[in-house]
């Protein structure tokens, strides 16, 4: 506890420092959550979720629409409060006191990038976080350049955000969180509405990250291409957790939970069936 406190103090004292030696883990125990209306409970709810993810890992959270994937991610960054259970992120318990520190080490890519880009130009949007975190103009410039070059969109630097295509918007949205140099990246349906080329490019970008990544999606092909571990959700519960190969090749399990085998697995299975038939 004392060690964590020291880390927190050090973190606050050195805004520009890259905290590589910190334990960037996510630990969730007994998480339950309900959307509450005045009339009582409504909509999606999470029930007793236990989850652990460690540094450098890429975890896919899969499930049909409305099972609580986005809700789970939003809780992790403190956008939804009033949950039961305990959440620890990077050694800090998720509560009001630690929220700004947790948000600082966590980058969240929204499902709709159009809502994430609110400044006039790509440069201004990518520079938004470093400026808010008190980096000098020179440091901000360096961070923006780093983020844009990592995403391969240096040429979009001075472009207006409303003039970007869907794929460019997605890359700009990711650049806007990369400029914070987060140690944890959460992505909500990152490939939604992307054409094959942009989707492929995005998969390449996701694979190039060394941070802990948690991707919520029902694009199982993308999950297969990026994640090593997969958690299957249904009705607000974690139904099964295992390696990507194990989960994404289990046709029965996926179909029971409103999903289908990813194309790669389907092709592999039909090839095997063909070979067995011969």
């Amino acid at each position: 506890m004392c060690e964590i406190q020291n880390l927190r103090t050090e973190f606050k004292a050195n805004p520009g420092q890259n905290e590589n030696d910190r334990f960037f883990e996510i630990d969730v125990k007994g998480l339950s959550f309900s959307y509450r209306n005045d009339g009582g409970h409504s909509g999606r709810t999470l029930y007793g979720i236990d989850f652990h993810a460690h540094k450098g890992e890429c975890v896919g959270i899969i499930g049909a629409n409305g099972v609580g994937k986005s809700t789970f991610l939003k809780i992790l960054v403190g956008l939804l409060d009033g949950f039961d259970g305990k959440i620890n992120i990077g050694g800090l318990e998720l509560n009001k006191k630690n929220l700004s520190d947790i948000r600082r080490m966590t980058g969240y890519v929204f499902q709709d990038s159009e809502n994430q880009l609110f400044m006039s130009t790509v440069y201004e949007d990518v520079a938004f976080a470093p400026q808010n975190y008190g980096y000098s103009p020179q440091q901000t410039e360096e961070r923006v350049n780093m983020a844009l070059s990592q995403m391969g969109i240096e040429d979009l630097r001075d472009r207006h955000t409303f003039m970007l295509s869907g794929g460019q918007k997605k890359l700009a949205a990711i650049a806007s969180i990369i400029s914070m140099t987060p140690e944890i990246i959460l992505m909500d349906e990152p490939t939604i509405a992307l054409d094959p080329r942009n989707r492929k490019n995005l998969i390449r970008v996701i694979n190039s990250f060394s941070q802990l990544r948690i991707i919520a999606s029902h694009d199982l092909d993308m999950i297969q291409d990026t994640c090593t571990r997969v958690v299957l959700m249904n009705n607000g519960r974690f139904v099964r957790e295992g390696s990507a190969d194990e989960i994404l090749n289990n046709r029965q399990l996926l179909e029971e939970n409103g999903l289908e085998l990813p194309l790669g697995s389907r092709l592999r299975q039909s090839r095997n069936e063909g070979n067995n038939g011969e």
Binding site: V77, L79, N115, Q116, F128, I177
Partner: peptide, 20 residues
């Protein structure tokens, strides 16, 4: 959603001047 996106990137109620 836009406001949440701003909060997640350290927005604390003030826009900073871009180029000082």
């Amino acid at each position: 959603i836009v406001y949440e996106s701003m909060l997640l990137r350290g927005f604390q109620g003030e826009f900073n001047d871009m180029k000082n």
